[in-house]
Amino acid sequence: MFKRPLYIFCVLALLLVVLILVLQTTLGTRMKLAIGGLFLPLFGLSSAVDSGMEKAGDRVVPRSVLVKELSDMRRENDRLRILGRQAQEVFLENQRLRIMLGRPEQMPWKVRAARVVGRDPANWWHMIHIDLGSRDGVTNSMPVIAPDGSLVGRVGDVGHARSQVILVGDPNCPVSVLIQETREHGVIAPSSINPFDQSIVELGYLSRNSILRPDQIVVTSGKGGIFPSGILVGRIIDFQSVDQGLYTTARVKLAMAISRIEEVWVIQP
């Protein structure tokens, strides 16, 4: 059925595939970024269409709704301004106390808004694409949070105008966390996946004496060097003992909903 040159073609093609597979990680990543650049026109086009539709939608909103929204926003802004002043006072006090105790100063976050332009086309990873890249100062492993302040993940590979964000719950994004109430430390890992609810992850490495109860808040611990401390991760759903009672693991419902994320904030140092 196949002639001899075609057999040679098959062998050469398979050799090429093997060669690509054994490429070093950095070279493979560069190649992926270069090839992914082919999709930039489509990403740009869909972003333009999205913003065009948004603008068209804005034009048909009645004036009364906009006025009401504006007054609500003003009220919210005033409330947040007061809270901001209080927080500023607390922050300065905290800095003074840190200096007195000889502990390193905590720098305030610098955040940059990004739009989510796509998701991982494969079913085996939790990853999104954002429209910020190296030209915007984004680098590998920067933390990413949702507009409500909950943890989204960390930046993975960075292209010129686009970056990958590896989400919490992916095996490539372990997060050191603590339970806010009890200060118990643990590590977030992917759960034995429920395809219908990808927002449930597993909190492992908890001691067997942990005092746990549902609805406790889980935040980042600041250990590990990637995520600053105090970012909301989620809430505990339930827990169980593992390894004949040696450890405890808990299931955590993430605060961010992957399917509803449209915009994120990248925390820059």
Binding site: V17, L33, G118, W124
Partner: peptide, 9 residues
């Protein structure tokens, strides 16, 4: 693979 976390190729 370029749009995914899959290893290249």
């Amino acid at each position: 693979d370029s749009l995914s976390l899959n290893p290249a190729g």
